[in-house]
Design a protein around this nucleic acid. Structure first.
Lengths: 216, 216
DNA sequence: ATACAAGAGTTTGTATACACGAAAATCGAA
DNA sequence: TTCGATTTTCGTGTATACAAACTCTTGTAT
């Protein structure tokens, strides 16, 4: 693995996990020493982070981790709705029914056994699997790129919202419905199911927002 | 202006204008000499181009200008519809009516005087103005970023499609309608007008596609 | 005491040199 | 003649050294 890739992966992980909170200045020499690479590959990593929107280049003072807070959740979900609804539509037209039928069954099972908090990560992985399947079925590289750029920011927001077990069960049911709609091959239904799920997700985030875990 | 910015701007311009057609290998030393900069800032420029999707990094053999052809037009317009419809909706909710009323009037005027081919560039500039106004009114940085990433690829496709004066006049009328719908403050109407415009644009591109100006 | 300017220090931006890896070409053997 | 291995060459990946720019501090003058 290239050193620049290593630096990029490490920095991105640290930013998404809030180990490097918004506003942190990413000094080149400092980060280069911390990650054990030279300044050249690190600069390349910083460029890619800036292109992703995870960091912004401040003139004269290096790059800082970009700001993110629940204030951005509406903008983020607005874009998310546009992209994921389109992806669901495309997937319903071109997707393999068997694949999404299987996924729906998995979500049904997950919905039943979601008491232990240890199941949370497994559920997130399953949801990620659905996203990947939809993306693959849509087979639109431009849409896929836009979705990837969006998911980075969504992952960062996850730390600001609480996912109670009740919500996860509800979410699993909604995901199952999305998968079934795609398996059916009905674009309109898939779009509606996706829109509904995103609406409920946003609603939950808004009402269960952490009071003041501020913008650092 | 920084040398890396200069290199990025030059390369991007050359790629969009097809001076560097798809498949061209962008050797580091070669391009560095051509643009009069060193390899270090040029590498940064190449990274940004790869992030934009204008170039792809091939393992061991540097980066090459990414492929683009009319085969991608459906995928591209699929994403474009999703993004621009959402932007139009947001703009209709939050936009300043006077601004879009003025733009509508300009499109009316442009529709009348679009005989000389010299007016073509002026019209494109006007259309770009509407896009910028919508983007500003939507005031969603994430959506704006996605739109920017998309427009780069659209600009590259423009070289493959012919815009006859008749189509431009029709397009001007459609743009005027979009602007008026936003000025009215009706999100649904703005979405419908945008969708119609994009449908007609794609239809025109499809039917007037250059027969075999291939993928280079 | 405050404001402005000058200087020092730190940090980014750029260039160049070196090392590693991959691809191609050539030589040898079957 | 063809296949394979080895060597050579070209290009990317990385590190380090140097230069330029910005910021912060300090000193002086009003």
């Amino acid at each position: 693995m290239k050193a620049s890739d290593k630096a990029y992966a490490a920095l991105r992980r640290d930013i998404v996990s809030w180990a490097l909170p918004p506003g942190t200045v990413l000094g080149e020499v400092e980060q280069a020493e911390r990650l054990g690479v030279s300044r050249t590959p690190l600069r390349e990593a910083l460029s890619r982070l800036a292109a992703d929107g995870l960091a912004v280049a401040q003139r004269g003072r290096g790059v800082v981790v970009s700001d993110v807070s629940l204030d951005h959740v509406d903008d983020l979900f607005s874009l998310r709705r546009a992209l994921e609804v389109e992806a669901a539509r495309s997937a319903a037209r071109a997707g393999d029914a068997a694949v999404f039928e299987d996924l729906a069954a998995e979500f049904d099972a997950a919905s039943a056994a979601l008491d232990a908090p240890a199941e949370r990560d497994a559920y997130y992985a399953l949801a990620g699997g659905l996203d990947a399947a939809i993306e693959a079925a849509a087979s639109n590289p431009y849409l896929a790129q836009a979705l990837h750029g969006l998911r980075v920011h969504l992952a960062r927001l996850r730390r600001l919202s609480h996912d109670a077990p009740d919500r996860l069960r509800e979410s699993a049911r909604e995901h199952a419905q999305i998968a079934r709609a795609i398996a059916t091959g009905d674009p309109g239904l898939a779009a509606a199911a996706t829109m509904l799920h995103l609406h409920n997700s946003l609603d939950h985030i808004r009402s269960h927002a952490l009071p003041k875990e501020a913008t650092a």
